[in-house]
């Protein structure tokens, strides 16, 4: 019997209920303590180190969208961090709520972006960086290319007309009828090729319609009080936003569903339905920066400017191309092309 008891003593039994209860209670206590802390942190509660007194305060945050890699972020002049190479957006929290903060993004070789944004407790204010290179590289588009594809301004025996140049001439309204005919014939040839290809591949022909289209005025124009959209100068529709020029100013409206407006239409209380860019200097022409709906390329008598739509604080305005008597357009590569002194410059920014 004694031996048996010794064996029982040596036997390693399952965890005792007491041990398990202690571990369980320990975990429960950790849960009870940590859960409220994590939740409080998640909704923005922090110890009040802003006023150096022992109390809780609720903070807010900002989220900066950026397409520029490795840019440095400063808030109220204090360096916060650098954005990444792949993940370029930045989320910064622990900001004192119910006040404005100066958010600044800098990178060598680019114009800085600075924005004074309100931070509301428990909320995140968004901003999108507009940073144009200080030195914008450009490529001259010449009228002729030789058989090797090199561009030239002069005709010679081996030249052919540069189709890119031809396209721009038409786009800018400079094309002579001869050039226009050349492009038309080039396009016609291409269409014929496609047609033939489709017939070969599918046994079907590409149909064309000669029926005139009867367009009704879209409802959003009616809602905006625009009776005749054809009379709007430089009208541009981009996704759910429309913009045009009126008396040298840009007018822009949201025409999508209410409640789905991009962040720059809204402060944390309400959303507006449009913007006006009203400059002393008359705006001659504008467009959206390719790939973005939150900033414009604006042309006036002094040059081309990148201008952000967001007017929650002073708009960031950065020079793209300075000069007089310019014109610009967006080419088929989705790049900005400037016409200066009869020469086309494709800008890379």
């Amino acid at each position: 019997m004694e031996n048996f008891k010794k064996q029982q003593d040596k036997h390693m039994g399952p965890l005792s209920k007491k041990t398990r209860s202690i571990i369980w209670a320990f975990m429960f206590i950790i849960f009870i303590i940590i859960a409220p802390m994590i939740l409080a942190y998640s909704v923005g509660y922090r110890f009040n180190d802003f006023e150096e007194k022992f109390s809780w305060t609720k903070t807010g945050g900002v989220y900066v969208h950026s397409s520029i890699s490795n840019a440095d972020i400063y808030i109220n002049g204090e360096y916060i961090r650098s954005g990444g190479v792949l993940v370029r957006n930045s989320f910064v929290q622990n900001l004192k709520a119910d006040t404005t903060h100066i958010i600044e993004v800098r990178k060598d070789g680019y114009h800085g972006w600075i924005k004074k944004l309100p931070v509301i407790e428990g909320m995140v204010t968004e901003g999108r960086v507009l940073m144009v290179p200080i030195e914008i590289e450009n490529r001259i588009i010449l009228p002729f290319i030789d058989l090797n594809g090199s561009a030239t301004t002069t005709k010679n025996e081996d030249y052919i007309i540069n189709p890119e140049y031809l396209e721009l001439e038409i786009q800018f309204g400079l094309a002579s009828s001869t050039n226009e005919d050349t492009l038309t014939s080039l396009l016609t040839e291409q269409i014929e090729n496609i047609k033939n290809q489709n017939i070969l591949e599918d046994g079907l022909s590409v149909g064309t319609s000669s029926l005139p289209l009867i367009m009704e005025i879209p409802k959003y124009f009616v809602n905006l009080g625009v009776e005749n959209p054809d009379e709007l100068e430089g009208l541009i529709t981009l996704n759910d936003e429309i913009a045009w020029l009126e008396s040298g100013n840009i007018i822009m409206y949201w025409i999508g569903k209410e409640g789905e407006e991009p962040f720059y239409y809204c402060d944390l209380e309400e959303c507006k339905n449009g913007f006006v860019l009203d400059w002393d200097e008359e705006i001659l022409k504008f467009n959206f920066i390719p790939g973005r709906n939150d900033s414009w390329i604006v042309m006036n008598n002094l040059g081309l400017w990148a201008v952000e739509v967001d007017d929650r604080s002073v708009r960031n305005i950065q020079p793209i191309y300075e000069g007089e008597n310019l014109d610009f357009s967006i080419n088929s590569n989705n790049n900005v092309v400037v016409l200066d002194g009869g020469i086309f410059y494709e800008l890379d920014f």
Binding site: Y41, V43, G60, G61, Q93, G122, V124, T125, E260, L268
Partner: peptide
């Protein structure tokens, strides 16, 4: 969750936490 929730700190902290 909609825009109102998406703009909240909780929404941003949810994936982080």
């Amino acid at each position: 969750g909609g825009d109102r929730f998406r703009d909240s700190l909780l929404s941003y902290n949810l994936p982080i936490v």
